[in-house]
Design a protein around this nucleic acid. Structure first.
Lengths: 356, 356
DNA sequence: TTGAAAGCGCTAACAG
DNA sequence: CTGTTAGCGCTTTCAA
């Protein structure tokens, strides 16, 4: 009744281990999965057999029955409705732009550090066109990942709605424009901008300007509004605004415009560190000393803030913590699908360095 | 003989589609997988049924029989033997450091842009400790991914050997210290450094110094050697060297040391753009104008090069192309496992900007 | 060209 | 505490 031995080269299966240990497949499975109620002696024998045979459980087979993959999709969902029907060149540009921003590196760091100790790994995906979005939904529906972490920047991004509509487990980074029944993590952007405003005022700035982020992304708009509100409350007049795109280059351009119209400015709040860095460059080129002549405050406390000369005073967004929390919320949801949606808002903190 | 309908909420299976289309599972499978020899009429009926039922093939089930996952692991394999037995804090620091470097963003860009049109996605993993390496090998052996793209910086990294030893398909970014029978892509680092040397000489620099990368990483060593060789060939004396760590901070420290010992220097070659940026900061703080007093050349042509003031002359490493090629080599290998190992060496190009 | 049937390797009742 | 057994959903011979 002895079965034929496996072909050499083929990966050993539970069956092989069972035979080697003289027990049943079920018992080996129990030991491998750490299920209690297995005689210690047998347990030892099985472990022995596992290492002798070099057994590694087949993920597909396991996944087929457990209906879990221990993988989560990390989806970068950039643009909104536009960007469809573009060629590969533009898609490539999108990914390049995303990864060039230190923000995504920090998201990755937070997600990976949370997932790794739990034996899970993120699958990287993009969803900037409607086709790409469909692919993401299909991917999830195929059971290729247990759920999705969606980093969405644009307000009218359809992906959260699609995913929620399909009943797929997901958590968002940044609150969606319309509530869609998905948990999210976010930052109190308004409060952060207020911190910047108060700080500039305390430093004695009286001719303050601001470089905002894109006004169609919530973080951009809220940072501007919070800044304006705080200034207004303290009796300051509405600051001149130049809209940027969260890139260093756009920050430079915005600073040029502001300087041309308000040569006497003495304080700048840029809605992120990249733009603040660009502003510093332009200020220096135009003969302004930072912070002596002009104080500059950034936002995010990304690597760009400390890399800048002078190092930037900035409003810290704890991206890594937020990303980890996002992953945690997803795992909670996977473990208890019926639990109500819960979101977490983080509070920003002012980090004072040399630019103010 | 009618089978009971599926429970509501359960994902539709091939069986459901087959029933809806009035054909067998096998036929549906053929249509879904685009196998020829299916009557066009039936084909249409099946597609119809697919969209009616909202069918999405179950990846695990498919993978169980095809033994393919259409996923590849993208492994960042940092440190060598050290770093073992450390706590989560240090592991977290490793991932943070990796993602803060623009280099990895470019690798990601190249890999994702290549894989995406082919319906594949990278799973992000780290292998900086021996435990993490074992996990990566186990992951691959479980068939969780079809192969691995390994970005390894340290020379004595054991991972390539482990993976090769286990007979797992993989391609490396950067040549391994000892040949291990794995394809790789790499840059002609020496040639790149020669370009920098020649350019500095042409610009009239005569008191040249260099900030090298870590000498235990091949790219660091080779860039230094190529630079020294080119200078020697042209009759220049051996340049003073300060070793850096490929970070902006270490570049600043190195520049300080160099300036202290060689106040009259008029040319600097930094082994990457981050360090070159740091060097520029220090030079300016010490009252040197770039490029009037001191010419600075970086390496990589990363985002840091154009973000620097002045924008850096640098040696371009086409990271995105190299990463895409790496992914291509892996897919080739997966399609034809018996094909011989082939590696690709890219040639660097000098990009002249304002720092020289 | 289509269908029937045999697994892929694993987990999870259910008996014993 | 352990073994038997029945699938998970799919692809793929093999016949028809």
């Amino acid at each position: 009744m002895t079965q034929a031995p496996r072909a050499a080269g083929a990966a050993p299966t539970l069956e092989d281990v069972a035979r080697a240990a003289g027990v049943s497949r079920a018992t080996v499975s129990r030991v491998v999965n750490g299920v209690r109620n297995v005689d210690p002696a047998i347990q030892k024998a099985v472990r022995q057999a596992v290492s002798v045979t070099g057994y590694a459980p087949n993920r597909a087979a396991r996944s087929l029955v457990t209906r879990r993959t221990d993988a989560v999709a990390l989806v970068v969902s950039g643009a909104g409705v536009e960007a469809d029907g573009r060629g590969p060149a533009e898609e490539g540009a999108f990914t390049a732009r995303v990864f060039a921003d230190p923000f995504f590196g920090r998201v990755l760091t937070g997600v990976v550090n949370f997932l790794r100790p739990r034996g899970m790994h993120p699958v990287l995906m993009f969803a900037e066109t409607s086709r790409a979005r469909d692919e993401v939904v299909a991917y999830l529906r195929q059971g290729s990942a247990d759920g999705a972490l969606i980093v969405s920047t644009h307000a009218q991004d359809p992906l959260p709605g699609l995913v929620a509509g399909a009943g797929l487990p997901a958590v968002l980074y940044a609150r969606p424009s319309r509530p869609v029944g998905i948990s999210y993590v976010d930052l109190a952007h308004r409060d952060g901008a207020r911190l910047a405003a108060e700080h500039l005022l305390e430093r004695g700035c009286r001719r303050i300007v601001t470089i905002s982020g894109p006004l169609d992304v919530p973080a951009g708009r809220e940072r501007l509004e919070g800044f304006q509100e705080a200034l207004a409350e303290r009796g300051s007049s509405l600051p001149p605004v130049a809209e940027g795109l969260f890139t260093q280059e756009s920050g430079e351009a915005a600073m040029e415009r502001l300087l041309a119209e308000h040569p006497g400015l003495d304080g700048v709040f840029a809605a992120n560190d990249l733009m603040a860095t660009g502003a510093c460059h332009v200020l220096r080129e135009r003969g302004r000393r930072v912070p002596e002549d002009v104080a500059v405050v950034g936002f995010d406390d990304s690597s760009a803030a400390s890399a800048c000369r002078p190092p930037l005073t900035t409003v810290r967004q704890p991206v890594e913590d937020m990303a980890a929390e996002m992953a945690g919320l997803l795992l909670d949801r996977l473990a208890a699908p019926e639990r109500p949606v819960t979101s977490v808002i983080f509070e920003p903190v002012l980090v004072v360095r040399d630019s103010t």
